[in-house]
Design a protein around this nucleic acid. Structure first.
Lengths: 230, 230
DNA sequence: TCTTGTTAGATTGTCGACAATCTGCTTGTC
DNA sequence: GACAAGCAGATTGTCGACAATCTAACAAGA
């Protein structure tokens, strides 16, 4: 009775591969914020013409991690403390919604997947792979969105994820510290398996708090005492 | 003391104009859901080469109103009852957040702008211009997002707006009724000017409810009793 | 009759070259 | 020396043509 459960064929267009490459370069900090993307140089490096490269860049502009100025160029977005703060407070509200919606839909598959992703984080942590640690942590966190059964909510989360990953990667790059050895997701996973939804929501908020606070402090430090008035 | 308040120069690239044209065609229902966009035909009609057209389409795919299948084509998104329901329940939560954030930032400029946009809706209603009525109503509603001082929240709203406008336009198209003469936004505007934030939030939710309920009923009617199981 | 292989037409994906625009330097003038 | 005009050089925007892929119609075989 096992239905053959094929996954979609891999995207075979150059455009899709370029998107993946560029996104990765940006999210890992290989391409720094504010940096200009020279079309000719990149197309030559990738052995690709400018047409698919430009289309890929247009996608990433819409995704919000590149910004384009006509006849001037396309740049990696700058990251301000306000951007991080905005993403943070928005994320808090979304999290509560996602947990609320996903809560009654939790089943064995959910718990299994939760463990699987949790394991992936722990493995990346053991391997001292900071990039992958951020990536897997976000995937762990994203499970409630995938389970919330709301396409708009999920899509919004995925958009936000790009930027969050970029922010955290920047932070890690700057600190250049070894990754924390202890498992900060233990409580989160346990609460999601439990019976108290409010407690899970509360923890999710506070748990996110911690990481973000560090991030914010770092970003504020970068900005030279700007005039923050309207 | 009046600062020269210039608006940005108009986008001079064909790409930007194509994006605007296509978006308009989709949001007004000129291009029906599911319809395929033939690149050659459109590029000839617009007297433009396929390169900027394709870049424009890539943007709209990311914006969520087009969908692309490699080597098969790019299509206007289909609208299901679930999509509308998802957008609806997501919008409710966002609205509460937006009102909460915008509330303490309301000032004279806010009230003036509120009146201005309200007037625009009434004018479109008097002119029996349904398309413009939808557009202006969404702009009126979007003010709280612009005032909430959160870039992520605003951006998310703008993305959602595209689809909402499309949904409502479809609905209007299908009903083909004259627009309602009475002013459904009167209470909304009055509450936003008042002192009771909770009341404003409650009304926004219920006000939105009305329009959406009709929309949902319509969309469900379209779908041939689909199996709604997982 | 149903399935499978082939082929022609149409459409999308990609390429290399040209046009439009910006940037920085040079030049000339005061 | 300061400043504006004008001139390369580089970069982005756009174009037309070619290559890769899909669709459907049709033929051949079980």
């Amino acid at each position: 009775m096992a239905k053959a459960d094929f996954s979609p064929i891999a995207d075979t267009t150059r455009r899709a591969e370029i998107v993946a490459l560029l996104r990765r370069a940006i999210l890992t900090g290989q391409l720094a914020p504010g940096q200009k993307l020279n079309e000719l140089r990149i197309s030559e490096q990738m052995r690709v013409s400018r047409a698919p490269l430009r289309e890929a860049m247009r996608e990433l502009v819409q995704e919000g991690i590149l910004t384009s100025i006509p006849y001037a160029g396309t740049f990696v977005i700058e990251v301000t403390a306000k951007d991080i703060d905005d993403a943070y407070s928005f994320n808090k509200v979304m999290d509560e919604l996602a947990i609320e919606r996903a809560w009654p839909l939790r089943d064995q598959r959910f718990f299994d997947e939760l463990d699987r992703r949790h394991e992936a984080v722990k493995q990346a942590t053991r391997a001292l792979d900071t990039t992958r640690q951020i990536e897997t942590a976000l995937q762990l966190h994203g499970l409630i969105y995938e389970w919330a059964d709301n396409s708009v909510l999920l899509e919004t989360w995925q958009r936000l994820t790009s930027r969050l990953q970029m922010y955290f990667a920047l932070h890690q790059h700057a600190r250049n510290e070894p990754v924390p050895a202890e498992d900060v997701h233990e409580t989160y996973v346990r609460l999601l398996k439990g019976k108290d939804m409010r407690a899970a929501q509360r923890h999710a908020r506070e748990h996110i708090d911690l990481d973000f606070e560090e991030l914010l402090a770092y970003a504020r430090g970068l900005e030279q005492r700007p005039s923050r008035g309207a």
